[in-house]
Design a protein around this nucleic acid. Structure first.
Ligand code: FES
Ligand code: FES
Lengths: 143, 143
DNA sequence: AAAGTAGAAGAGTTTAAACTCTTTTATTAC
DNA sequence: GTAATAAAAGAGTTTAAACTCTTCTACTTT
């Protein structure tokens, strides 16, 4: 569905979002622990997301990653797009070079519907939306 | 969504299905051409599917791959399952070790809905269902 | 029986994703 | 200013998917 890199990214961002609500910055070490991911790898991913303007960071002691109010309003679709590109949202389900209604693959009609739903779901899910349920321990970022 | 191997497999099987309707067997060369895939690679995949009972084959001149009536009734979900396993149908959308309602990831509730739809769509799509539209040139297996 | 065709099988290569390590640079606390 | 902290940057390794090549075996036509 999405790449592993992208899964890590989403989980990391949800964690950062949660902490950002209380204005705290979090270091890579803490993030890696919270989402159970390889520390240097998540560092890379977050750097990349930082460059693309999806997360803010501060160096030095008390530094770390954080989100402002605009960042908390970004959607999961934004993260997926930044990392995996838009293949999931616009690509053909059977791997044809491009998806088009003019030369559709056999599953095109059905696939378009599903794809639209995935997109809607991800666009609707904002990073800040899960803070409460995460804090209450109703939702988990690792197993 | 599904692996490239799986995409090739589905396209190949749809082509074999189409030809099987008129009781003709098709060789690897012909299949590779029809779906625009590397010939030795699709050979491998079809061998694998043959071993798993999803496609029949005959050796020698006039030989090739074909499907019987039972085979034509297999669904795309069967193909996906044989090649990618059931990760797509049962796995967690954020990559947690397993998906469970007891310890759900933040997107679990929404994801379960989408996943169910993907599964339904693929279970509903039978290999034999597309023969007519493929023959009429309404649907395509390559671009 | 011989020749030709086509699948079966297995080893091998390539490529890209996933993951790691090391060095550098910026920032802040003291 | 110095030391500690943490991100930035880039090179490097590992692993698995994607793809290829070669050899072997079975079958069918003539
Ligand atoms: S052409 Fe395959 S999904 Fe649109
Ligand atoms: S736990 Fe993530 S989808 Fe169910």
């Amino acid at each position: 569905m999405v790449s592993k890199t992208c899964e890590y990214a989403i989980r990391a961002m949800l964690f950062v979002a949660q902490k950002s609500k209380s204005k705290t910055k979090v270091g890579v070490k803490q993030i890696a622990k919270a989402i159970d991911s390889p520390e240097p790898f998540i560092a890379k991913i977050l750097q990349d997301l930082g460059k693309k303007g999806l997360v803010l960071s501060a160096k030095g002691p008390t530094g770390g990653f954080y989100l402002d109010n605009a960042g908390l309003k970004k959607s999961l679709a934004d993260i997926v797009n930044a990392i995996d590109g838009d293949k999931l949202f616009t690509g053909c389900g059977l791997g044809l070079k491009s998806c088009s209604a003019k030369m559709p693959c056999p599953v095109h009609d059905e696939f378009v519907v599903v794809r639209k739903q995935i997109k809607a779901m991800m666009q609707n899910a904002k990073l800040g939306d899960y803070n409460t349920s995460l804090e209450l321990g109703e939702k988990y970022l690792k197993r």
